[in-house]
Amino acid sequence: MKRAGFAQPWLPMLLLLPQLTIIVIFFYWPALEAVRSSFYLEDPFGFGSSFVGLENYQILLESREYRRVALFTLFFTLCVTFFSLAIALLLAVKADKVLRGATSYKTLLMWVYAIAPPVAGLMGAMLVNHSNGMITHLFGAAGYEFRNGLNYSDTAFTMILVAIWKQIPVNFIFFLSGLQSIPVSLREAAKIDNKSGTSRFWTITFPLLAPTGFFLLITNITYALFDTFGIIDVVIKGEPGNNPLTLVYKVYVDGFRGNDLGGSSAQSVVLMVLVLALTVFQFRLIEKRIHYT
């Protein structure tokens, strides 16, 4: 608050009202509802529901299917996060370094941000089309029959590839702006202290990018967990079948297709806990994070 804040009592209430109303109705209510219904078992024919305590969670934890999805989600998240960060970092370092054409590269590398995930998924699906997709042909030329939608790991490959592609621009933009905020004189001091560019990168530039990196790490994990729904939905053509799924997709499948309200809610709560843990982790990092001023 500003030291000379206004003292009117009603105006601020009025100003807060729209935001508070919306988040109470569309955030707190559904969030609590999810927690509540995770303790109930819905009658499959819609005749009321009964309290079952932690049974939904127990079923979840014992479900091999759920564990498989969780494991795939972990793998998916790791791959997407690692590769999109690594590729974006490499490109940002190069774009920051070149003098000629830097702006053009910047534009070319960031515009994909604007493409919607399902549109990206559609492109991916076309590229791995079984009869005539280009990636399928590439694999074919290497002697491997790539079967998106039929072979579990092939489908996973497509999902991961598209998810990485879609996330590179954001990471690139953040890394580049992180790099550009390193003072020129700091790099020059390093040039006088250290002859090797590679060693300078790992001892000076990389540690200075750490705050950006930590931030992006969390952003990317969140992205891989939640924002890839559109990609997955399109790549597997809306057919869960035997395909790799992430936890969020399974919440959707069980809740809306399987009508398993309790189970889906329990999964939602598990995800909530996961996100909360991530947030706590993030705040810890921010607390510890070196303030470079």
């Binding site: 955030f27 999810a34 969020v248 919440v251 309200l261 809610s265 939602s268 996100v275």
Partner: peptide, 8 residues
């Protein structure tokens, strides 16, 4: 995010 409380 909205995705975790989508059903309710």
């Amino acid at each position: 995010p909205l995705e975790v409380r989508i059903l309710p």
